[in-house]
């Protein structure tokens, strides 16, 4: 019998190693997995650019074939943070039912169309994502403080409205997703999608997927361990502050995220290269949604000039 899942549902996840291009998306997802306290990834792009596909593929790869915990757009606060189990309640028992944040512990919490979600729900999620702490106090009962760690990924199509700057700032990393313009890459994308369709139809498994998944997970888990041992150098801290100042970013969150992201990248690529190279790569992810233009709703792409600016600031800092 054919698979009844329609509309390219959860049963049809493109393997992560079959994603073509989208290097910035991949980098952001991996950094956020290595250091969840980076505070989440926001993927913003027009329709049909593969944002959700990338998130599902990544979660599938790092969580042993599991899909991310997905926040439904109609999620209530109870469902997000947890609440009394109604079924048990009616049987006279007070039993706590964990919410989606706890379900996502150790994995990925995926919020599709995050710009359509109620702001207060987004606030709750971002609070937990950046502090790793969930405290619930409601309906006469207080739950003990719980440590929760997950990779938060939100996707949105800016054509449907943006996020307030305060919320944007709370996402550690942001990627403006655009589609591949190279015809060979587009061809490869189509070919990979159709291959996956066929495998699903025939209930086949991709022989490479298992090995690729293991390689990725090993690489990222090792980086996680290495990160725990890492200490930020005073030069790195100085450079992060210099970058944040040069891009006129408000608040201190960007400094912190810059440092964590650069260290996470260093943990993923344990070579002797200078932290400048790492900062150069993570700066667009950290700074583009915190630039002053973002506050007025502008969605300007990160330009080559801005890359040059980062390079210049770092070269001055070196002197």
């Amino acid at each position: 019998m054919s698979n009844p899942t329609m509309g390219g549902g959860s049963g049809n996840v493109l393997p992560y190693h079959r994603l073509v291009g989208q290097n910035a998306v991949k980098l952001a997802l991996e950094l956020s997995y290595v250091v969840p306290r980076i505070g989440g990834v926001l993927l913003s792009g027009r329709r049909g650019t593969g944002k959700s596909t990338a998130v599902r593929a990544f979660s599938h790869a790092v969580k042993d074939g599991e899909l991310p915990v997905t926040l439904p757009i109609n999620a209530t606060e109870d469902r997000v943070v947890g609440g009394w189990d109604v079924t048990k309640l009616m049987a006279g028992k007070l039993e706590w039912k964990p919410g989606l944040l706890e379900d996502a512990h150790g994995g990925t919490l995926y919020v599709d169309e995050i710009n359509l979600l109620d702001d207060h729900i987004v606030n709750i999620i971002l609070d937990v994502a950046s502090t790793n702490i969930l405290v619930v106090q409601r309906e006469g009962g207080q739950r003990e403080k719980r440590n929760i760690e997950f990779t938060l990924v939100g996707t949105m199509n800016p054509e449907e409205g943006g996020l307030r700057p305060q919320l944007l700032d709370r996402f550690g990393l942001s990627v403006n997703v655009s589609e591949e313009m190279d015809s060979n890459n587009r061809r490869q994308i189509l070919s990979n999608v159709l291959d996956q369709d066929r495998r699903q139809r025939l209930n086949e498994t991709d022989p490479e997927t298992q090995q690729e998944r293991k390689n990725l997970k090993d690489r990222l888990d090792s980086a996680r361990e290495r990160f725990k041992e890492m200490k930020p150098s005073s030069e790195l801290i100085g450079d992060c502050v210099a970058l944040a100042e040069a891009f006129q970013v408000e608040g201190h969150r960007s400094d912190l995220v810059l440092a964590r992201a650069a260290m996470a990248l260093a943990a993923m690529e344990p070579s002797e290269t200078s932290h400048h190279a790492h900062l150069q790569r993570v700066a667009p992810l950290v700074l583009q949604h915190r630039r002053p233009e973002a506050a007025s709703g502008e969605r300007l792409p990160w330009s080559d000039q801005e890359n040059e600016k980062v390079k210049e600031i770092l070269s001055h800092a070196r002197k």
């Binding site: 027009r46 329709r47 049909g48 650019t49 593969g50 589609e179 313009m181 015809s183 587009r186 061809r187 994308i189 189509l190 070919s191 999608v193 159709l194 369709d197």
Partner: peptide
Amino acid sequence: IMDRLMEWTGTEAISGESVQGYRRTIALAR
């Protein structure tokens, strides 16, 4: 067939005034 299909990708007929993601090409292939 893939070559013929890719001819359509990026044309105004399938992609509008600017390229609009992959969904239309994938739908055509499916």
